[in-house]
């Protein structure tokens, strides 16, 4: 049996040697090379498209920044001057809120519009409470880095004649 196995192995080895000449025909390689060239062309097209897209985006960004800088350079100081000259803010003291006792490493002031009724909770009445009973007022809220509000003050903008 072992001898038969050996002979079978020999026969298979001879077959393997004989098969060494087996290969795909040239037309297969030619067709596949053509496919590779198509892939290369597609890749070049994709790269070109990507370059055009990036260039367009950069151009748009530069143009936007230039336009913003030009418009703000021209009109900015004028508006600021007008604002500074004509509007004044009157603020209340800060009133502690529910989380005021929670320690905070840093605080930020966030300006919000709140309902005028919220002033009443702190025993305050807006100056124009009688003429404008509803609507909103500005409030500066002190917020910690943990997102909890510590205190609030109310802001009233007063227009002044130049």
């Amino acid at each position: 049996m072992n001898q038969s196995n050996d002979h079978l192995s020999d026969a298979l080895r001879q077959l393997k040697d004989d098969d060494a000449s087996m290969a795909a025909s040239t037309r297969v390689e030619v067709a596949l090379r053509e496919e590779v060239r198509t892939l290369a062309a597609q890749r070049r097209r994709r790269t070109r498209m990507l370059f055009v897209q990036v260039a367009a985006t950069v151009t748009l960004m530069v143009a936007s920044v230039a336009w913003w800088a030009w418009t703000h350079h021209k009109t900015g100081p004028e508006v600021t001057a007008t604002t500074a000259a004509s509007v004044q803010e009157i603020v209340t003291e800060y009133f502690p809120l529910f989380y005021s006792s929670v320690p905070a490493r840093s605080l930020q002031v966030v300006r919000l519009e709140v309902s005028r009724a919220s002033m009443a909770r702190f025993g305050l009445l807006p100056g124009d409470a009688l003429t404008r009973p509803s609507g909103t007022v500005l409030a500066d809220v002190l917020v910690g880095e943990d997102g909890l509000a510590r205190a609030v003050r109310f802001v009233q903008k007063v227009s002044q004649e130049p």
């Binding site: 290969a23 795909a24 090379r33 590779v36 060239r37 892939l39 290369a40 062309a41 597609q42 070049r44």
Partner: peptide, 16 residues
């Protein structure tokens, strides 16, 4: 990626 030389080597190595 369309590298013909790389394809040739791959094909020659394994097509049989």
């Amino acid at each position: 990626n369309g590298d013909e030389q790389a394809f040739s080597r791959l094909f020659a190595a394994h097509q049989r």
